[in-house]
């Protein structure tokens, strides 16, 4: 495996630092060589910046990629939004010489140059590829007796022609990684539906965004699960922060704990909820934390 750099994005370090810590702990446990990526910025956010101006989107995205090129490491994302933005920018710049030239004209002003020498990875497709679910299962020290509602999120698998990760309607690779921890990935209606946050909808039209979310939450509640698992801090923010907003605005209490896959894996590797920042969510379900405590003792 090529060495990696960890691209943090915005929401992980600046809202859910537990995801950052959990990711580092899990990568270390799996002996995956992944360094920091000092000086990285917003990916930039695909829903808004890609809409606004293509040159700006490519300039900021390419700068982040170039930082990783300079370290001769592939760039690892832990967010579907960052992944979509950076993998698409990387592919467009690698395949379109005119676009590469115009983007490098901007980068020249900060003494940088996009070469096209590294790949952009997402932690879920990376872990599925290597070490793979079987070896992850072998590394688990605390098998998790949990029922999980898995949320793939949109930009991990779509547009499927660009992602090349198989079916976007009924994928299974992420479920396999969840089940490698001992947890059960419970099927539920609208499992592949959007959380409602993307495309600038959450930032500009919060009430509508929460209606889309609430539909999904109601499906998940009916599935009687212990928690929601995602691989995207923006979906994570929507599920966790959104539940708090729905409680405040509509008086409806869902109280479903939300974990990034790194945090789920961290639990299976024997780290405590506190070490993984699971108790720092806005939704802190005491029954769930008690259950995790018992799992850790068992």
């Amino acid at each position: 495996m090529k060495k990696l750099s960890l691209f943090l994005g915005c929401i992980t370090p600046n809202r859910y630092p537990g995801i950052e810590k959990a990711t580092k702990l899990c990568l270390e446990r799996l002996e995956i060589d992944c360094s920091d990526l000092p000086g990285a910025s917003c990916c930039p956010a695909p829903g808004v910046f890609r809409s606004f101006d293509k040159a700006t989107w490519l300039a900021l995205a390419s700068r982040n990629i170039v930082l990783s090129e300079e370290m001769e490491r592939d760039l690892l994302t832990i967010c579907n939004g960052c992944y979509g933005s950076l993998v698409d920018a990387n592919n467009e710049l690698k395949n379109d010489p005119a676009l590469k030239k115009s983007t490098n004209a901007h980068l020249e002003k900060i003494g940088k140059k996009f070469k096209g020498t590294v790949d952009v990875r997402h932690i879920v497709e990376l872990l599925y590829d290597e070490p793979g679910p079987e070896r992850i299962k072998e590394a688990v020290v605390k098998p998790l007796d949990l029922r999980v509602a898995l949320h793939y999120g949109c930009h991990l698998v779509k547009p499927s022609k660009e992602r090349e990760l198989g079916s976007a309607e009924d994928p299974t690779f992420f479920d396999e990684l969840v089940e490698a921890t001992g947890a059960e990935s419970v099927d539920y209606p609208d499992k592949m539906a959007c959380c409602g946050a993307g495309g600038g909808v959450r930032s500009a039209l919060l009430d509508k965004s929460l209606e889309i979310l609430e539909h999904k939450l109601s499906r998940i509640r009916d599935a009687d699960v212990d928690c929601i698992v995602n691989a995207c801090p923006f979906c994570h923010l929507q599920f966790d922060g959104g539940q708090a907003e729905i409680r405040e605005k509509h008086g409806v209490l869902y109280d479903i704990p939300v974990l990034h896959y790194s945090q789920l894996l961290g639990l299976a590797f024997g780290f405590s909820p506190e070490e993984l920042g699971i108790d720092l969510n806005l939704v802190t379900n005491q029954d769930f934390l008690e259950k995790l405590k018992k799992l850790a003792e068992g």
């Binding site: 920091d36 910025s41 700006t56 700068r63 900060i110």
Partner: peptide
């Protein structure tokens, strides 16, 4: 975090790019 938040010179680079693109 190890991002532009920690490195002012990196933030300056981002701002140079945004200006260069007319953003």
């Amino acid at each position: 975090p190890e991002t532009v938040h920690k490195y002012p010179e990196a933030l300056a680079d981002v701002q140079t790019l945004l200006k260069s693109c007319g953003f």
